[in-house]
Measured scan of single mutants.
Amino acid sequence: MALNTPQITPTKKITVRAIGEELPRGDYQRCPQCDMLFSLPEINSHQSAYCPRCQAKIRDGRDWSLTRLAAMAFTMLLLMPFAWGEPLLHIWLLGIRIDANVMQGIWQMTKQGDAITGSMVFFCVIGAPLILVTSIAYLWFGNRLGMNLRPVLLMLERLKEWVMLDIYLVGIGVASIKVQDYAHIQAGVGLFSFVALVILTTVTLSHLNVEELWERFYPQRPATRRDEKLRVCLGCHFTGYPDQRGRCPRCHIPLRLRRRHSLQKCWAALLASIVLLLPANLLPISIIYLNGGRQEDTILSGIMSLASSNIAVAGIVFIASILVPFTKVIVMFTLLLSIHFKCQQGLRTRILLLRMVTWIGRWSMLDLFVISLTMSLINRDQILAFTMGPAAFYFGAAVILTILAVEWLDSRLLWDAHESGNARFDD
């Protein structure tokens, strides 16, 4: 018995066209964080690309023209004298008006014999932002004059995390709450300039795509075929072959399989920071003279006294001054041990922890910024005066060393310790 099946006739004509040209192939790229070699397709503007294995951002879609970056830099340069030299806060102490600005706080630190601690604050609040705007201006002028731009481009990517104007702005709020127990506070004209400078700096850093600047100024022929001998440069993120001198053909720094002496430098910085954190938390970090009496505060006791007036601000200072430094030390110690013992479990967790400490590390400088600003506000000789204690130097040095330890660690070593050939990683 035959089955009668109805015929289905399409209502619209289906047209099949042959592909007349070869589909576009992607360029081969190595991930600078996990060293995976993959094919990167062509990316349009405002599109980002991520590593298929570790999800690290390979290409950032946010990109401004150099002219727009230069305009932002010149605007920031105009704001800087007002943000640093004009009063941020006014207080009335014992019937006398006192003005506080950024430069005055750094000068008070240096004047009291601790120039190293003052230079830490100076670099993060004044030096690094000033280098940022002058570097962008150098790129703008240098591109037109045919100057060598490689050193500036190499420095810009590392400079971003040292620009800490946003953290200093939080420190202004913390210092205001600490001082309000002794005097009446009012915002100064410099505060508005400083807030504007923070906003412009944040926007500029978020749109400063150094890798795209490398592509514009020093374009290189990408690798179009897969080759395990391809290496990625950690300076400019170019994937290719080393030249005859073993250097990256684009930025001219040595092109090595792994960062040289990464573990040794990381261990040295980490152990030194552990040693410095002990006096930083045991010795007094601030000293207040009130009517001839002397009151010393460690980091913890200062947080407890701050909690009596504002528990939320005390929580912020606790996280930045105690929780973050010790968390960074514990995480980095764990990561280094996992590399030495070739741990194969929990790779995803370790990668996330490394990215976390990379982002939060700079916030530990908050305590030094609060001390710097408070020193310029309260300084009335023996009637009422505020000065920093010996722990300030140890704390600042420990924070900087932990930042350097994270920067010096080559994250690809975590993958080397893991089993080879993993296309995915999980716990």
Rank of each mutant, 00 (worst) to 15 (best):
A2E: 09
N4S: 08
T5A: 10
Q7T: 10
T11Q: 15
R17K: 10
R17F: 09
I19W: 10
E22K: 11
E22I: 11
R25S: 13
C31E: 00
Q33P: 08
Q33K: 15
D35Q: 02
F38E: 04
L40V: 09
L40K: 13
P41W: 06
N44C: 09
H46I: 11
R53M: 11
I58L: 06
R59S: 08
D60M: 14
D63F: 15
W64R: 06
S65G: 11
S65W: 07
M72V: 07
L77K: 05
P81F: 05
L88F: 10
H90G: 06
H90C: 07
I91Y: 04
L94G: 02
I96G: 03
R97G: 06
R97H: 09
Q104E: 06
W107T: 14
T110M: 02
D114W: 08
A115P: 08
T117D: 01
S119W: 01
M120E: 03
V125T: 04
V133G: 01
W140G: 08
M147H: 02
N148Q: 07
R150A: 03
K160V: 09
E161R: 08
M164A: 03
I167L: 01
I167N: 01
G171I: 01
I172M: 10
G173W: 07
A175L: 01
S176V: 05
V179W: 00
Q180A: 12
Y182E: 06
A183N: 15
I185T: 05
V195H: 08
A196T: 15
P222I: 08
T224K: 14
R226I: 10
L230C: 05
L230Y: 08
L234W: 12
L234I: 05
C236G: 01
T239R: 01
Q244C: 07
P249A: 04
R256N: 03
L257F: 15
S262Y: 01
W267P: 10
A269Y: 02
A272K: 00
S273G: 08
L276N: 04
I288S: 01
R294D: 01
Q295D: 05
D297Q: 07
I299W: 15
S308G: 11
N310W: 04
I311F: 09
A314Y: 13
A314N: 01
F318N: 14
S321D: 00
S321G: 02
V324P: 05
V324N: 13
F326S: 08
K328Y: 00
K328H: 00
V331D: 01
V331W: 14
F333S: 08
L335H: 08
L337P: 07
T349G: 13
R355E: 09
W359D: 08
W363N: 03
S364R: 00
L366F: 04
T374W: 02
L377D: 00
I383S: 02
I383N: 02
T387M: 08
A397L: 03
I400H: 06
L401C: 12
A405L: 02
E419I: 12
S420E: 11
F425S: 15
